[in-house]
Design a protein around this nucleic acid. Structure first.
Lengths: 171, 171
DNA sequence: ATGCAACAGTTGCAAACACCAACTGATGGG
DNA sequence: CCCATCAGTTGGTGTTTGCAACTGTTGCAT
């Protein structure tokens, strides 16, 4: 494979990283909640009454990190911790009415933004998305052996080859 | 445009964000320098003896942030601050021999990783890259027009740094 | 030349986010 | 009954970031 092509790709990826970073940093961004909180909200929206640990795995975060993030959401009245199930260790997370409403608003806004983004690409949107999904999928596979090796980072699987790939990616 | 398609895209984007976050966090990642430092190194490799401010704009970072990041690189003997040009306010940044060598290593490793990633996608690599570049480009445009007014987006001049963008995207 | 606005960079300060380690309480096998 | 294990919380720490304030430089206009 042509190295120049790879370099182009990596450069674009760096650019995307910075763009996302900048976009995320905007305060109007999440209608009052922080970025991490917003992500957690989206995660809860995707899963069905997840446990804290389950959501942490889903999001690739440490449970302690998520625990604190959820604290904020609970304080803001957007999320409830539901205890007292069969297993009293578990807390299930669920959105309050306000939480659901906020999710809706966030979705609406972001859908609008990304419709524009997708329309701004010359290629047909479904194609763009297919390629993008394929890319993320592949990165996920490759990245697993590269990054996940170092420590038990959430999802048990891990297996970890001895740091073989040392992939920075953040280059 | 079909909303379901947009949602799929957004979900993939969230996933990518988490993946990058996780990969970047790997300590073997940057051969001893931090992620931000590594990015700065790459930026200096792309530009020709940039000033601190110039690199900050290029990277979409506040000059203060970059100043501190560069501090670390200078301490590590990877970068030199070159003063005393025509304009004595400016400091030009340049890589030392060690810095250049590190850049090389980082490039080599990452090229290897992303060759694998690209090979793992079913579509031809040049196509993947074209689509990806188009996407990043479009996001950059949309992001820019979206807000621009909200805050001083770092490097004053505005001119087009990937600075302030109002949309969430971090959803 | 002098005075002043704009610029380049540094430093002080605070916030967000992440991880690991240590801890508490609940579960369940031996 | 005891102890390893699991779920979640809390304490501590590090990185990364931005804004505000400050120093020194430059250049323009008076």
């Amino acid at each position: 494979m042509d190295i120049a092509v790879v370099r182009r790709f990596r450069r674009s990826l760096r650019r995307l990283e910075r763009l996302l970073e900048a976009i995320l940093r905007d305060e109007t961004c999440c209608h009052g909640v922080s970025v991490a909180q917003c992500h957690a909200l989206m995660g809860m929206d995707e899963l069905e009454r997840p446990s804290l640990g389950g959501l942490a795995v889903h999001m690739g975060l440490d449970k302690s990190t998520l625990s604190r993030t959820v604290d904020g959401l609970v304080k803001a009245g957007l999320v409830l911790r539901e205890q007292g199930g069969v297993d009293r260790r578990k807390t299930l997370l669920l959105l309050t009415e306000n939480g659901k409403a906020l999710c809706q608003r966030i979705h609406t806004d972001n859908d609008a933004l990304f419709v524009k983004v997708l329309e701004g690409v010359e290629v047909a949107s479904d194609q763009v998305i297919s390629v993008f999904e394929g890319l993320v999928e592949s990165l996920s596979r490759q990245g697993r052996s590269a990054a996940q090796g170092s420590k038990g980072c959430g999802a048990g699987a891990g297996k970890m080859g001895p740091g073989a790939i040392a992939g920075d990616s953040h280059d």
